[in-house]
Simulated scan of single mutants.
Amino acid sequence: MMKNQTMNKGLKITVASILMAVASQTYAGSFSQDKLPSEVRVPAGHKVAMYTTAEGNITWECKANSENAGKAKWAFAGPRAILSDNKGNHLVSYFGPPATWESLDGSSITGKQLAVSPSAKGSIPMQLVKANESTRPGALKDVTYVQRINLKGGART
């Protein structure tokens, strides 16, 4: 008999996340995409809506292996992270699945991964996500893309 167990396999992640918005809005500024791999660059015409640092964990669950009776395997259960400003103030919570970013003001977005690119050894890959529009007003209302860059840690070993 097997029990479901969850495990945070010590996969701590530190990430810089950039939330980009359409250029027709007035936002914090710009961010050079020049040194990023082309796969994870936000298309031209977007401005930075929010630049955050994220710290969190990836959780894996021990589940019965349907392909090999009597054996167990680790299955991805989801991420959890706190996105903070440069002063350490909590701005957004990130969790999933599905991938969801929720601001303290109640606005939230989900998104679809468009691309990934390798990151530093031992780190999860850089990522570009196309955001679905927030149905609530607030900080995430007009966010169109999310970039995950400058990563440290989180890769499953």
Rank of each mutant, 00 (worst) to 15 (best):
A54T: 03
A99H: 10
Y51S: 10
N86T: 12
G106P: 00
A23W: 07
L91P: 00
E61P: 06
P97K: 15
N68Y: 13
K47H: 09
K35I: 10
G45E: 00
L36A: 02
K87I: 10
A120W: 00
A28H: 08
G111D: 03
P43N: 06
S134W: 04
W74Q: 10
W60G: 03
L114G: 03
T110Q: 15
W74C: 09
I124A: 04
F76P: 02
A23K: 08
E67Y: 11
N86C: 12
F95P: 03
E133G: 14
V48G: 00
G70Y: 06
S84M: 14
P98C: 10
S134R: 03
W74Y: 13
Q113N: 13
D34Q: 15
A75C: 08
Y27L: 08
P98Q: 11
I109V: 15
Q113A: 10
P137L: 01
E61Q: 12
Q25K: 06
S30W: 08
Q25N: 09
K121Y: 05
M126Q: 13
E133P: 11
R136F: 09
P43H: 01
P97N: 13
G88N: 02
S38T: 09
P37E: 01
A44G: 12
C62V: 13
M20C: 05
M20N: 01
L128H: 05
R41E: 01
A49R: 04
A115K: 02
W60N: 05
F31I: 05
F76A: 06
L128M: 07
P43K: 05
S66A: 12
Q127F: 09
R80W: 11
D34K: 13
Y94D: 08
V22F: 13
L114H: 04
A81Q: 03
V42M: 04
N89W: 07
M50Y: 06
S17R: 05
P118V: 07
M50K: 07
Y51A: 11
P98R: 13
R136M: 13
S93F: 07
T53M: 06
M20A: 07
